[in-house]
């Protein structure tokens, strides 16, 4: 096994054994099951099924918790080992900093992916049993995983940039608050009070990974984006329904790579 593969396996094992993994899997499982049981199978009315409750619930569950749950272990990943000296010992072995970093990245991503799969798989079974189309679930699940990867990348990048775990966690929580609510509220206020241009709202929606995720989910359920009013219509007009989805996914994909790569650049350039 190459050093890189060894590192990946070790990081996966470390993440899977961490207390957070079991806790997350349990939380995802319970909340997913609850959501699926309550809203996963809205009654069929005239051949139409509503996803409003399940959808709003899923969006909020995913948007509030998945990012935080990805951020916390990711921001701790490097700072922790830096503090304990394990990182320096590891780097003194015949490995490169890049391998160590990528090992952590892949390990965290795999562990979170597994935790999400455990939770959403079971919830998905309930939802499918209650009549939710499996294809739609698959798309939503893919987007949730992508969202988790975004915040693994952000967390890991922050972890590489900061020296102590406490600081990394603080920064993580601030970033989370900013992306989940404060940033968007700021834009809302800027629009209402100072007449910020409408395109700024749209740009923010694509740039902020949380909002891009929401856009992707809305687009999967309602390709016309009629829920999103004139701004939604303009988006669909400009890029088409698949374009919306693709752009949102692209935004998420960039977020899932760029912060992590920035962290890698910092981490592999020795100080």
């Amino acid at each position: 096994m190459t050093p890189a593969a060894l590192l990946v396996r070790r990081e996966i094992a470390t993440a899977l054994r961490a207390r957070w993994f079991a806790a997350y899997a349990a939380i995802f499982l319970l909340s997913g099951l609850l959501l699926a049981a309550v809203g996963g199978g809205d009654a069929l009315i005239a051949g139409y099924r509503g996803f409003a409750r399940a959808f709003a619930g899923l969006v909020h569950l995913a948007l509030l918790f998945v990012p935080l749950m990805a951020l916390l272990p990711a921001t701790a990943a490097i700072a922790d080992e830096r503090e304990s000296g394990a990182l320096e010992y590891l780097l003194a072995q015949p490995v490169t900093a890049t391998e160590v970093y990528l090992g952590k990245w892949v390990g965290l991503a795999a562990a979170l992916g597994l935790a999400l799969t455990v939770g959403f798989g079971a919830a998905g079974a309930v939802a499918v049993a209650r009549g939710v189309p499996p294809g739609l679930l698959a798309v939503l699940f893919g987007q949730v995983v992508l969202l988790a990867l975004v915040f693994v990348a952000i967390g890991l990048g922050l972890s590489a940039l900061t020296t102590s775990r406490a600081r990394a966690t603080t920064v993580a929580v601030v970033v989370w608050l900013g992306l989940v609510a404060l940033g968007t509220l700021g834009i809302l206020i800027a629009f209402i009070r100072w007449g910020a241009p409408a395109w700024a709202l749209t740009v923010w929606t694509f740039v902020n990974p949380i909002e891009a995720f929401r856009l992707g989910v809305v687009s999967a359920l309602d390709p016309d984006l009629s829920l999103l009013g004139p701004a939604g219509a303009r988006i669909v007009d400009r890029v088409g329904p698949y374009g919306t989805n693709a752009l949102a996914a692209l935004s998420l994909a960039l977020w899932a790579l760029v912060p992590g790569l920035a962290g890698l650049a910092v981490f592999s350039r020795p100080k």
Partner: peptide, 30 residues
Amino acid sequence: RERVGYVPQRAPHFDGTLAETVEFFSRLRG
């Protein structure tokens, strides 16, 4: 680093058991 062995001042507390740690670092060092 393949040719150099290193013992730091204080051994970090690795995650997992002694056997796992020994196996991991042995394999990492070849």
